[in-house]
């Protein structure tokens, strides 16, 4: 085993709702607004489809940060989905913080389909935060990290 210190490359999962944030990420792409490649997006129909279980799973599998993006409150394609998501995440994130997954590693952000700039800015600031927090060791299943 080498003692050489490996460069920290965070794993970041972004859940984006199909109607607003995923489209916002597309707009960031077509506007060529860069953000670090550490962010990988999973498309979900609505932010309310994000089960807290998925986020726990991500941390368990070695994610260093999880961000969830949805339509702005009041603009949900399904009328009320993001309200449920907001409440669920508030609870989940406080619980995660309690067990040692710092609040900075989780975030909810509202990004509309027109907000490519906001999407890229959000991802840049989130990744920066994760770099400052370093590797997530709390929930990580040690067998999953190389």
């Amino acid at each position: 085993m080498s003692l050489e210190k490996k460069e920290f490359k965070p794993k970041i999962v972004a859940f984006c709702c199909n109607w607003c944030s995923y489209a916002g990420a597309d707009l960031a792409g077509s506007s060529r607004l860069t953000y670090p490649a550490d962010v990988k997006i999973i498309r979900v129909p609505c932010s309310c489809r994000v089960n807290p279980m998925f986020i726990l799973r991500a941390f368990e599998k070695g994610a260093d940060g999880v961000i969830m993006c949805g339509c702005h409150p009041g603009d949900c394609h399904y009328s009320t989905g993001n309200f449920y998501a907001r409440r669920r995440m508030t609870l989940l994130f406080s619980m995660l913080d309690y067990i040692g997954v710092e609040n900075g590693r989780t975030r909810v952000e509202w990004v509309s389909a027109a907000e490519g700039v906001k999407f890229s800015e959000t991802m840049n600031s989130f990744v920066e935060k994760i770099y400052s927090l370093g590797e997530n060791v709390r929930l990580g299943d040690l067998r999953c990290k190389s």
Partner: peptide
């Protein structure tokens, strides 16, 4: 319309969304 709100709300994990199932997303 397939938003999935019920799938997360379901306390017994009985609800799932076709095409975006729990297993698929995991």
């Amino acid at each position: 319309q397939g938003c999935g709100a019920c799938t997360v709300a379901c306390p017994s994990g009985a609800m799932d969304l076709q095409g975006f199932s729990n297993r698929q997303i995991i």
